[in-house]
Lab assay of single mutants.
Amino acid sequence: MDVFMKGLSKAKEGVVAAAEKTKQGVAEAAGKTKEGVLYVGSKTKEGVVHGVATVAEKTKEQVTNVGGAVVTGVTAVAQKTVEGAGSIAAATGFVKKDQLGKNEEGAPQEGILEDMPVDPDNEAYEMPSEEGYQDYEPEA
């Protein structure tokens, strides 16, 4: 019985440690998101679009440190934060509304985080759909 109880105690310690790591990862992701939003706020009209992409990228980098179902929630929060940063930029006159959601080359930025393969159960990952990809044929 002692062996059984000791095993359960060790398992509990492992769960607590994993929860603490997840909590730490979420806190880091939130900190990076805040950094990115402050970065966007300090940019001029020309830099705002690039700044919004930076927020998304920093958040995406930190999301990889967070495991399990938390990833889905962090990704949703990050996307809403990026959308909010863009709205703030438009409201303050840093950028025109028609410039939001495009990178410096004018290509749409939507789907940055949505296409990231995420499995809350950590069982399997699927690649994003290939609808947006084109076949590449090298020139002879």
Rank of each mutant, 00 (worst) to 15 (best):
M1E: 00
V3L: 08
V3M: 13
V3P: 00
F4A: 02
M5V: 12
M5R: 02
M5A: 02
K6R: 06
G7I: 08
G7E: 05
L8V: 04
S9Q: 08
K10E: 02
K10T: 08
G14D: 07
V15C: 05
V15D: 00
A17E: 11
A18K: 03
A19F: 15
E20A: 10
K21Y: 12
K21D: 01
K21H: 08
K21W: 05
K21Q: 09
T22M: 14
T22Y: 15
Q24T: 07
G25S: 14
A27V: 12
A27K: 15
A27C: 03
A27T: 09
A30T: 07
K32M: 03
G36W: 14
G36I: 15
G36V: 11
Y39H: 06
V40I: 01
G41C: 03
G41P: 00
S42P: 00
K43E: 00
K45W: 15
K45L: 13
E46G: 04
E46V: 08
E46R: 00
V48A: 04
V49A: 15
G51H: 01
G51T: 10
V52D: 00
A56N: 06
A56F: 15
E57Y: 02
E57S: 03
K58R: 01
T59G: 06
K60F: 04
K60C: 07
K60N: 07
Q62D: 04
T64Q: 04
T64E: 05
N65D: 03
N65Y: 04
V66A: 07
G67W: 12
G68E: 02
V70S: 01
V70L: 14
V71A: 08
T75R: 06
V77A: 09
A78V: 06
Q79D: 05
Q79P: 02
K80L: 10
T81N: 01
T81W: 14
E83L: 14
G84S: 11
S87E: 01
A89D: 04
A90Y: 08
A91C: 06
A91F: 15
A91L: 14
T92Y: 04
G93M: 06
F94Y: 13
K97M: 01
D98W: 04
Q99F: 08
L100W: 09
K102Q: 10
E104A: 09
G106S: 10
G106N: 08
A107I: 08
P108W: 05
Q109R: 02
I112E: 10
I112H: 14
L113M: 05
D115K: 14
D115S: 11
P117V: 14
D119C: 06
D119L: 03
D119T: 15
P120Q: 06
D121F: 05
N122I: 08
E123H: 03
A124Y: 10
A124D: 04
E126T: 05
M127L: 10
P128T: 10
P128C: 12
P128L: 09
P128K: 07
E130P: 11
E131W: 11
E131H: 13
E131K: 06
Y133E: 15
Q134M: 05
D135V: 04
D135N: 13
Y136H: 13
E137T: 06
A140E: 11
